[in-house]
């Protein structure tokens, strides 16, 4: 049979084209963002007038003074340790709560909701607030800081783990059910091994985040480099502050390298 030209063929009609509401949503979104800007007095004018001040302010940090570097490095290590312990705490808590917060694994609706709400609660408590509470109860130092980071990020890690566990192919869990394995065996032989990669990725991200936030928690007396940063800023010792900030930035960059290296090793 000869192939007819396209136009000559009577093509079967397409079903009616669905209406695309994207332009309406996009316009609405832009409108809302613009209104929020007006409400908050965000205008390019302020930004332009403020530019000179910004440049002037940052120029004060132009001469970092590393004369006290050894003590700063020690404080930085303290902050890193705080981040580590906070992450370990978060990991342990998440490890035990996440299986119950995964819809496909939780034994019943009651435990599922309880676990989820517990994680939501931990996530909703700001770590600065937690640090204030813990500093008041345990005194100044890195311990309350680590605890505050741990409680807050346990909520995040638990949610991440639970969502990853929900995405694991249901056949893997069934295979373990079929051999007669118990709940914890199912977790150790199907759940956790299947999400090992995501798990380590999330944990490394939380570690990175805890070290960064740990530096801020010093401001409320939770130890580490934050206290020194706060003191020098308050005393207008810009040279010292600059040195502290550089140490902080370099540490974060090194950590990022380290965590992508570790993640590359896991595949």
């Amino acid at each position: 049979m000869a192939v007819k030209p396209l136009a000559a063929q009577s093509l079967p009609p397409l079903p009616p084209r669905p209406r695309n509401l994207m332009p309406i949503w996009a316009t609405a979104l832009i409108g809302v963002v613009w209104l929020a800007g007006v409400q908050l007095d965000i205008s390019p004018k302020t930004l332009i007038y403020g530019w000179d001040d910004i440049v002037e302010y940052f120029s004060r940090y132009g001469h970092p003074d590393f004369s006290q570097a050894p003590s700063y490095v020690k404080l930085m290590l303290e902050t890193i340790a705080m981040g580590f312990w906070g992450t370990i705490f978060a990991f342990v808590v998440a490890f035990f709560i996440a299986p119950f917060a995964a819809r496909n694994l939780s034994p019943n609706a009651w435990t599922y909701n309880l676990a989820r709400e517990a994680l939501n609660f931990m996530r909703a408590m700001p770590d600065v607030l937690l640090a204030l509470v813990f500093v008041a109860s345990f005194g100044l130092g890195p311990l309350p800081g680590a605890l505050a980071l741990g409680v807050h990020t346990a909520g995040f890690l638990g949610k991440f783990f639970a969502e990853s566990l929900e995405r694991v192919d249901k056949g893997r869990y069934e295979a373990l059910d079929a051999v007669g394995a118990g709940f914890s065996q199912k977790m150790m032989y199907a759940g956790w091994p299947s999400i090992l990669r995501e798990m380590s990725g999330y944990t490394l991200y939380i570690l990175d985040r805890n070290i960064r936030t740990g530096a801020v928690l010093g401001l409320v007396g939770a130890g580490g480099i934050g206290i020194a940063l706060y003191d020098t800023l308050r005393m207008f010792e810009y040279d010292q502050s600059a040195a502290l900030l550089i140490i902080l930035i370099v540490t974060i960059m090194l950590l990022d390298r380290l965590s992508s290296f570790v993640r590359g090793k896991l595949h």
Binding site: D169, G171, R172, E174, V179, Y189, P193, S194
Partner: peptide, 11 residues
């Protein structure tokens, strides 16, 4: 039990 999709843990 043996499954269509084998259901092993690949890792």
């Amino acid at each position: 039990m043996v499954f269509q999709q084998f259901n092993l843990v690949g890792r």
